[in-house]
Design a protein around this nucleic acid. Structure first.
Lengths: 296, 296
DNA sequence: GAGCCGCATTTGTAGGACAATTTGGGAAGT
DNA sequence: ACTTCCCAAATTGTCCTACAAATGCGGCTC
C-alpha cells in the first residue's frame, strides 16, 4: 500500500482534527478503496509509524477507531487484517464518506438508493402518523429552505438532507434515525454524479418535496408513502442516467453475464404488486459473493 | 458512574479478549444503559484508569473503540462526552448487544421489529429475484436445521438467524447485509423475552419459514414479500405479548401522557393500504425527542 | 462592571520498555 | 524420511513517563 503520496496531501487541510482521526481517515479511505483488499494485512505498526511519520500511540488509536467500525481486527503476532466487507458497518457515516471519497462504484450507488427506496416511503408514512407539530413545522422549513437556496448547490443539498432526516426523526424510531448517514451519502453521491444530468427540472423536485410534506402535515400516511416513493423513483432515474453516462464514458461494455442469472420478469404477474419500489431492471450483479478470504 | 461493582465481575470470563476490548465493553454497556446519560461526561482519564486499574494507553484505546461507533467524543481540556443517541450507530453489532445486555427497553424492541418488518419483506422479494442457486440451497439448509434443532434452543436460534441472514445476503445489497446484526439482536431479544410466551406453536413458525424459502426458490417475489410479512407479523405478536406481560409484571401503569400526542387512527381510511407493515397501535411513544443536551 | 490574561486541567502525542502470543522453522527422535 | 516437540523471532498488547496543546475559568486590571 502506497502511503507516501496521500499521507502528505494538503498538510493544513483538516488540521482541526486530531492526529489519530486523520490517521483513521487516511487508512479508512485506502481500505474502502480496496488498497489492502479484505483478507489481506496492513503493514506492521512499525512500518506504518515510519511511513506516516507518527508515533505508535497515535497510530494505534487510529487503528482502534477503524476497529470500532468493524473494518479491521488485530491479533498478536499475526497483524492487522482487513475484515470481509460483509462485516463492515455500512451505515457508519465515515465508512460511507470514505466510499464516496474513492470513485463510488455503480453497485454502491445503486444499493444506496435501493435501500432508500425501501426505507423512506415507510418513514414518511410513519411520520404522517406520529410526527408532532414542531417536527412537522421543521419539515416545512426544510422545504422552504430548498426553495430559498435554489441557486446555491451547497445550501440546497443541506436543506434537502435536513428534509429527509427530519422525516426520519419524526418516526421516533431510533434505527430509522440512523439512516440519516446513508441519505447524506446518497445525496452527496447524486450531487457529485448528476450535477448536470437531472432530466427533471429542480422546480419539479421541489414541488414533490412539498407535496410529501403536505401529506405528512395532513396525516395521510398512505399518500405520504406513495409520494415519497415517487420522489425517490425520479431521483433514482436521474442517478441511473448519470451512471449510464459515466459508464459509457469510462469503460465500454461490461456486459458479460448479461444473461439469465436473475430472470428479467419485470414483475411476475402474481397477486397485486406491493406498493413501493418495484422489482427493477438490473442486468449486472455479476459478483456471486465469492466470499473472498484470501490471505497474502 | 459506579465502576467498582461490575468492573471486577467474572474475572476469567471473556479473558480471551484484549484489555481495551473489555474496557470498551464495560464502558459501552454502561453508556447504553444510560449511566452517563447523553450530554454528560465520562470521568477523566485519570479517574477511569484508577477505577478500572488499567493503564492510560489501554483505556484510551478502549475509548477510541467507542468513539469509532459514534458513542462518545473527546476534546482537550473538556473531557469525553456521551453523544446524543441519535448520533449512535444503531446498526453496530456491539451497540445492539450492549443494549440487550441491559434490560432492553420496550421502545428498543418495538423499533427493532418495526425496522425488520420494513426491510425483510423487501429482502425476501429481492432474494426471490436475484439469489443464485447455491445461496437458495443454503436458505433451505437453514430451514432444515431449524427443524432438526427444534429441541435445542441454542442451535435453533442460530439456524433461524442464518435463515434470515442468508436471505439478506441473497439480495446482493451491501447495506441490507449489514442488517444481519439487527436481526441477530432482535432474535436474541425475542428469545430472552418470550422464551415461553409464543402463542404460536413452533411447528407453525417453521412451516412459515419453509414457505418463504419455497417462494424464493420458485422465484415469486410478491409471494415471498407477503409470506415474510406474515412471518414477521406473528413474531411481532409474540414479542408484543411478552412485552405486555413483562410490563404488567414489572411496573404498573406508566400511562401518563397516554393521550393525544399521536392520534390513534389505526389506519386512516385512504387509498388501498400498502402491503406490509400496517400502521400499528402504539399508544405510548411518550418521548418527544427532547434533544437532551444537558451538561453536568 | 467589563474585558483581558494567565494558570490549571484535561486530552493528545511521543517514545521506550517489556509482556504475551503465535507463527514457523529447526532440532531431535523415531 | 517423517513426525513431534520446542525454541526463537516477530508482532501486537500493555505499561510507563514526559511533554505538548488547547481551553475553560478565575482573577487581575482598567
Amino acid at each position: 500500500m502506497d502511503t507516501s503520496s496521500s499521507s502528505m496531501r494538503a498538510p493544513s487541510m483538516r488540521a482541526r482534527s486530531n492526529l489519530h482521526q486523520r490517521i483513521a481517515r487516511d487508512l479508512g479511505e485506502r481500505i474502502a478503496a480496496g488498497d489492502p483488499v479484505p483478507g489481506k494485512f496492513l503493514p506492521t505498526e512499525a512500518d506504518l509509524c515510519a511511513r506516516l511519520a507518527v508515533s505508535r500511540s497515535a497510530l494505534r488509536e487510529g487503528v482502534r477507531l477503524l476497529a470500532g467500525k468493524g473494518l479491521i481486527t488485530s491479533k498478536r503476532k499475526v497483524g492487522t487484517v482487513v475484515r470481509p466487507r460483509t462485516e463492515w458497518n455500512m451505515f457508519d457515516p465515515d465508512i460511507l464518506a470514505w466510499h464516496l471519497a474513492a470513485a463510488p462504484t455503480d453497485s454502491f450507488v445503486t444499493d444506496l438508493f435501493e435501500v432508500r427506496r425501501i426505507i423512506e416511503p415507510w418513514a414518511a408514512a410513519l411520520a404522517a402518523q406520529r410526527a408532532d407539530a414542531p417536527t412537522i413545522a421543521r419539515i416545512g422549513v426544510a422545504c422552504e429552505d430548498m426553495v430559498r437556496f435554489q441557486g446555491k448547490a451547497e445550501e440546497l443539498l443541506e436543506a434537502d438532507l435536513r428534509f429527509h432526516e427530519t422525516i426520519l426523526e419524526a418516526t421516533g424510531n431510533a434505527f430509522l434515525i440512523s439512516f440519516g448517514a446513508l441519505i447524506e451519502s446518497a445525496l452527496h453521491a447524486s450531487f457529485q454524479l448528476s450535477w448536470s444530468g437531472s432530466a427533471h427540472t429542480p422546480e419539479y423536485s421541489l414541488r414533490r418535496h412539498r407535496r410529501v410534506w403536505e401529506t405528512i402535515r395532513e396525516r395521510k400516511p398512505q399518500d405520504a408513502f406513495a409520494l415519497m416513493s415517487e420522489l425517490l423513483r425520479s431521483a433514482i432515474e436521474d442517478v441511473h442516467d448519470a451512471l449510464l453516462t459515466r459508464r459509457l464514458a469510462v469503460t465500454e461494455g461490461n456486459g458479460l453475464f448479461a444473461g439469465p442469472a436473475a430472470p428479467e420478469r419485470p414483475s411476475a404477474p402474481q397477486s397485486g404488486e406491493p406498493a413501493g419500489p418495484a422489482p427493477r431492471r438490473r442486468a449486472r450483479r455479476n459478483h456471486p459473493h465469492p466470499n473472498q478470504e484470501e490471505r497474502q
